[in-house]
């Protein structure tokens, strides 16, 4: 059973980890979670980013947050990536698999996956 004792043990490990954190992150991944996003499948996309960032140990530099509707409902699930000193990248029609690919190529590799961006869809 996932007991409260186990939670206390996790807490003890976390305190050490959090103590060495130097910044709150230079990169922000924002997932749209309004009715339009949820209906289009944003929940597994958010989950894929949260788990992927954690699995790759990128948590110190990357935060995953949620937002409401940004007004382009027809392109949901929409994910925006904000990186320090770079232009915002907007990904549209996202899936959990695409999330993994974006973590690999964009977040880790530094190159936006152009084919999933809103610019590629609007053409």
């Amino acid at each position: 059973m996932k007991s409260l004792e186990e939670l206390m043990a996790i807490k003890a490990q976390m305190q050490d980890k959090i103590a060495v954190r130097t910044s709150t992150g230079n990169t922000r991944i924002v997932v749209g979670m309004a009715t339009c996003g949820i209906a289009a499948g944003a929940r597994p996309v958010l989950n894929a980013f949260v788990e992927g960032i954690s699995a790759e140990n990128l948590g110190d530099n990357v935060t995953v947050t949620q937002t409401g509707c940004i007004g382009i409902c027809q392109y949901e699930p929409v994910v925006e990536v904000y990186e320090k000193d770079k232009e915002k990248v907007t990904y549209v029609k996202m899936t959990a698999d695409r999330a993994k690919e974006i973590i690999e190529k964009h977040i880790k590799g530094g190159k936006p996956v152009t084919e999933y961006t809103i610019g590629a869809y609007k053409k």
């Binding site: 996932k2 186990e6 939670l7 996790i10 490990q13 976390m14 949260v50 960032i53 954690s54 948590g59």
Partner: peptide, 8 residues
């Protein structure tokens, strides 16, 4: 919201 806590 820490991933370890969410997992638990």
């Amino acid at each position: 919201a820490e991933p370890e806590i969410l997992n638990w």
